[in-house]
């Protein structure tokens, strides 16, 4: 099975992710894949959930915190600015309070609480998480390409969904118990209509959004998750370890892509000693990969002669991944 085939065969897999250890080329693969799909006429959003995002560097265009930005027709890229998101979130909460109670000004103790919320240790990550939920729930694109952060962090991001889910479940349970007593009071007072519990509704709303986004992540019909690896011992071992961890979160694995494969035609050319040794090593580990991952290997992408930045190099990489298009 090749990468192109996967895309042709499963057109419903519209959420694409590349995972793997740091520095193996996930971001460049994300960029190249989005480029390929855009050229195929699909409307694509590639977005980064990584505060050290490199999409700006790859596309050579400052997109940080600017929302979805058009790179070429049909290709949009976005880098989330967590700080900005947090600020917007705080403002949203403030506005809601003002609207709900017709106040002109937020009471001081509330205002200082809202401000202090920015100092919450997990605020930044959660803001990014929430923005992704937003992006996915909002819709509007044919393909969504997640530029995931390095391994551990990606797991952290996935576990975040389950933590929030559990949290919401717990406090929803409390709200529901409260509702019981509300009903009892209503029975005693012979009130027919019971006011809706706004908090319960809000919780259900949040839960629905989170579930929607995390169910996408774990839905094999909708999601393609590719692992990127290289032909090196430590990388292979770590990838196996990571794949097991991802399996725990029910992330459906679509296959593996081997990156940085030295082009074999080089072997016949005059190459320095270091490369000769590398070739030897590569051959050995390609064999290992073949044994361990077998036909789950979707593509071997050659080592580029220079780093992938700018559209021409992205196109070149895309062609290396998907063949000519």
């Amino acid at each position: 099975m090749s990468l192109t085939k996967i895309f042709e065969q499963y057109p419903d897999r519209r959420y694409i992710m590349f995972g793997g250890k740091g520095g193996l080329g996930k971001t460049t693969f994300s960029a190249a894949t989005s480029y390929y799909l855009a050229k195929k006429g699909k409307k694509v959003l590639v977005f980064s959930v990584d505060p050290q995002a490199s999409l700006t560097d790859i596309f050579q265009k400052d997109i940080f915190g600017k929302g979805p930005t058009e790179i070429i027709p049909n290709l949009y890229a976005q880098e989330i600015d967590a700080d900005k998101r947090v600020k917007a979130y705080q403002q949203e909460v403030r506005q809601k309070i003002l609207d709900m109670y017709g106040m002109d000004k937020i009471p001081e103790e509330i205002e200082s609480y809202i401000q202090a919320a920015a100092a919450e240790p997990a605020m930044e990550e959660s803001a990014i998480f929430d923005e992704v939920v937003d992006i996915v729930v909002r819709g509007g694109y044919d393909y969504y390409i997640y530029d995931l952060v390095p391994l551990g962090h990606a797991l952290y991001y996935l576990s975040m969904a389950s933590v929030y889910d559990a949290w919401i479940d717990k406090i929803t349970k409390l709200r529901e118990q409260m509702r019981e007593y509300d009903q009892v009071a209503a029975v005693m007072q012979r009130e027919k209509e019971l006011d809706e519990d706004a908090i319960l509704n809000e919780l259900l709303y949040i839960k629905e959004r989170i579930n929607k986004s995390s169910s996408i992540l774990t839905d094999k019909a909708k999601t393609a998750f590719f692992f990127v690896l290289t032909a090196e011992d430590m990388i292979i071992k770590d990838t196996q370890k990571a794949a097991a961890l991802f399996a725990k979160f029910d992330v459906p694995l679509s296959g593996y892509i081997i990156n940085r494969v030295l082009p074999s035609e080089l072997k016949s050319e005059n190459i320095p000693e270091y490369l000769k040794n590398r070739f030897l090593m590569q051959e050995h580990y390609l064999e290992v990969i073949k044994n361990d991952f077998g036909n789950e290997i979707l593509a071997s992408v050659p080592e580029m002669e220079r780093d992938v930045t700018g559209l021409p190099m992205i196109e070149k990489l895309a062609k290396a991944m998907f063949g000519d298009f």
Partner: peptide
Amino acid sequence: ILPPYYSLRLLPYVVPQIS
């Protein structure tokens, strides 16, 4: 307590009760 990100969303509803 480290209140999760989403608890801030609930704040507007409890404003009248805080004091």
